[in-house]
Simulated assay, not measured.
Amino acid sequence: MGFVLQTLATRAGTDNIWPDPADRRAATAQLLERASLVDGPARREIEELVVELNVEVARDVARRYRGRGIDQDDLEQVACLGLVKAVRRFEADKGRDFLSFAVPTIRGELRRHFRDRGWMVRPPRSIQEMQASINGAEEQLVQDLGRSPRPREIAAHLGVDLDLVVEALGASGCFVPSSLDAPLSPGEAAELGQTLGTHEFGFEAAEARAALGPVLATLTDRERLILELRFGQGRTQAEIGAEIGVTQMQVSRLLTATLAKLRLAMESAA
């Protein structure tokens, strides 16, 4: 315990007592073992030191979530809160490595923060509730497994379908939409918006022509002429009547009969 006692004695001396991660990991393990043997203020004293030793880990996890619409200082505060929770919940007697439990706990705290405050496009409530369940399950499974659980293991623990877990995990990035003016990659002139598809009316027109071609071939020359004058050239019924030598009323009846004939032929073809 000499190493731990020396650590406690030099607590206020520097912000980075052990720059070497291996030393920090060993000291953390010793401190947590010692904390499991005491209660009250003595335990809190040791837990606070564990937090100070591992605060850079929390900040590193928080940095992975930057650029998603929440201030970095806020993310670091939330990550530190997750670290404190991990220290207080960690069960040293299970023989697990502390960071394998702390990192998922910190990530879970950050995800909760985004779920509650960071959504630009809010997913269905069922997905939000599943994310909350997943966060709780991850903390328990990390303790049991000694590593981050796989989606299948989370689904089995919660007794839900794997697809629901995968969907909830996939929705964890819906925080800030990408700008359509953003380049596809740094230095490129092409923008994201240029890759999006647009509605192409030409396809519909081509499909309609392909379907109508055989049907139009069944019409008489007079019926095809009336359709061309009405829909191709935009003539009025009176103008069509004058063109083919019939009254406006007769043009109306001919159009109605021709369109009904076309409709029936299309339905039969379908």
Rank of each mutant, 00 (worst) to 15 (best):
K85G: 00
D39T: 12
R150H: 14
L99E: 14
T247V: 04
F90W: 02
D60C: 03
R111F: 07
L145I: 04
A35I: 01
D221G: 13
L53M: 13
R222F: 00
L255A: 04
R64P: 03
L158V: 02
S148K: 14
I134V: 15
S268V: 08
I46N: 04
E239F: 06
G232K: 14
L262Y: 02
A9D: 05
M266K: 12
I46F: 06
I106K: 13
T195R: 15
P41W: 06
A137V: 05
K261F: 02
G170E: 01
H199S: 11
T258V: 10
A27N: 03
V251H: 03
E204G: 14
G170D: 01
F201H: 14
T28Y: 06
A242E: 07
S179H: 09
R44E: 07
V142W: 00
A62V: 07
V176P: 00
D23A: 14
H157W: 07
R115M: 11
A189Y: 01
T256S: 12
E33D: 11
D97F: 15
A208W: 11
C80P: 00
P19D: 03
G170N: 08
S126Q: 08
L99S: 08
A217S: 13
T220E: 10
L32S: 02
V246A: 03
A79I: 06
W18T: 05
A12D: 05
T105C: 13
S252L: 06
W119A: 07
I226K: 04
L196P: 06
I46E: 00
